[in-house]
Design a protein around this nucleic acid. Structure first.
Lengths: 254, 254
DNA sequence: CTACACCTTCACGCAACGTCAATGTCAAAC
DNA sequence: GTTTGACATTGACGTTGCGTGAAGGTGTAG
């Protein structure tokens, strides 16, 4: 039972290029080469190829497969578990992505029937609704209806460019905050920059900035688990850290 | 407002390499170059970069982004819809992959006996602990300690095969629910199938099934954002949809 | 004047092959 | 004995979105 590249390829359903590649990376070497340099595979190689293809179908990368098939002491099931973890994480990311894409699409659809001029109205409207639904009640209780309505009104008055700046600033706040958290010091320069960015971000929608409101809001980020969860995406203690940084930034005393 | 590569990079949170690459592929060219060949970007380029990054975050590839941002006649929303289709298909593949990997793992575990059985016990134990930590308090408040403890006890009494059925059912519920959401009709056959699967799934751990409890639980999936988030992985309105479907399934009247 | 930070253009590396290209070999047909 | 055609070989580039040097020019502060 000896096979040339093509025969083995047909048998296993892979291209000859693949077999040469597997030889090249040392994952499946032919049993021998004939006088003209042709690759000759035997039964052992067939079995091994099956094994390789089995793991390949499960999405395992060739480097890991190599370890599994070459080192008999290597635990395949264990490797698969780690692999599963990666896949599950990948799916989580994909789920988030799809949710965002769908949000964007439905926002865009709400707008497409309208005039071109009102391009982002639907998008912003959606954002406000989301926000209201998530945090509306608490914010209204704390800051009063007027303030919140004014804030929403400001957002509705944003144009597309402002909106993009707004979302970008949001990203920046999170990025700097994450970096700052690593320092562990809320009075560090980075932390204070995060607080400043957060103020700027706030200024986009909050009608009147005040140190007290800023400090109070920061406290709420800690108290309200939904806010906390939002910030803690970037670091387990990000919400607390931001509060401390903002309290220093605003000169707020406990 | 002029920026060199690094300045713009810091502003937008991308590397200078990325900006040079975007120049190279013609997706974002600098406004001009100074006498020494330095790239100089202006406000227009900043805006455009924002737009690029916006789509990039949604996982759109640069080739498509190029079309969107360079050709004003190109419909971004349309591109996003095709993109979503790709993502959904990708997720379907990923789901299949994960199922296969899990099948393989549990098959391998069923083979090796003693040590792995203990691992399995640990697995269940872990699952209960996770669950307790995440939802424990609310559930205990709503349904009482006894019920919850009984539920946990049932899970601990599951054998491996039952456990596999249980997790498999969980996946099925999500899959059918996703499909049902597309119909938009909670009374549709698919939606009712989802509700039925959900009941079966529930039966695995819930000691005594009742329509009232089922309907109430479904309502909680909407009210509690953590449950909602779990179901909304598959569709933005999945939690609400499931509630409606279950309410029809159980004949619950508002 | 000298650091030193910042800029430039190559160019390789990454995963897993697909796809030529140029050339050698085997078996059968003429 | 030669031609043909299928099959083999070893390169080597293309794919995607940059990261990461290398080698060398430029801007500015001390």
């Amino acid at each position: 039972m000896e096979y040339t590249v093509q025969k083995l390829g047909e048998l296993a359903g892979v291209s000859t290029r693949t077999l040469r590649y597997y030889d090249e990376i040392g994952i499946l070497k032919p049993a021998r080469k004939n006088s003209s340099g042709y690759r000759i595979y035997g039964q052992r190689e067939v079995d091994r190829l099956q094994q390789i293809l089995f793991y390949r179908e499960l999405g395992v990368d060739l480097k890991s497969i190599k370890k599994i098939v070459t080192d008999p002491a290597f635990d395949g099931a264990d490797a698969l578990k780690r692999h599963r973890q990666q896949l599950v994480e990948k799916r989580r990311q994909l789920d988030l992505l799809i949710m965002n894409v769908e949000k964007t699409i439905s926002a865009a659809e709400g707008k497409s029937s309208m005039a071109d001029k009102e391009k982002f109205e639907g998008f912003k409207q959606q954002l406000i609704e989301d926000n209201e639904q998530q945090y509306g009640q608490e914010i209204r209780e704390k800051y009063g209806n007027e303030e919140v309505d004014k804030s929403n009104a400001r957002m509705l008055n944003m144009n597309e460019q402002q909106y993009r700046q707004f979302t970008q600033l949001e990203q920046e706040v999170l990025a700097v905050l994450r970096e700052a958290c690593e320092t562990g010091d809320p009075s560090s320069e980075t932390a204070q920059k995060a607080a400043d960015l957060h103020k700027q971000w706030l200024a986009f929608t909050w009608p009147s900035y005040s140190k007290e409101a800023h400090a109070g809001l920061a406290q709420m980020y800690v108290d309200d688990e939904r806010f906390a969860a939002y910030y803690n995406k970037v670091h387990p203690k990000a919400a607390e850290f931001l509060r401390d940084a903002v309290h220093i930034y605003t000169g707020f005393k406990k």
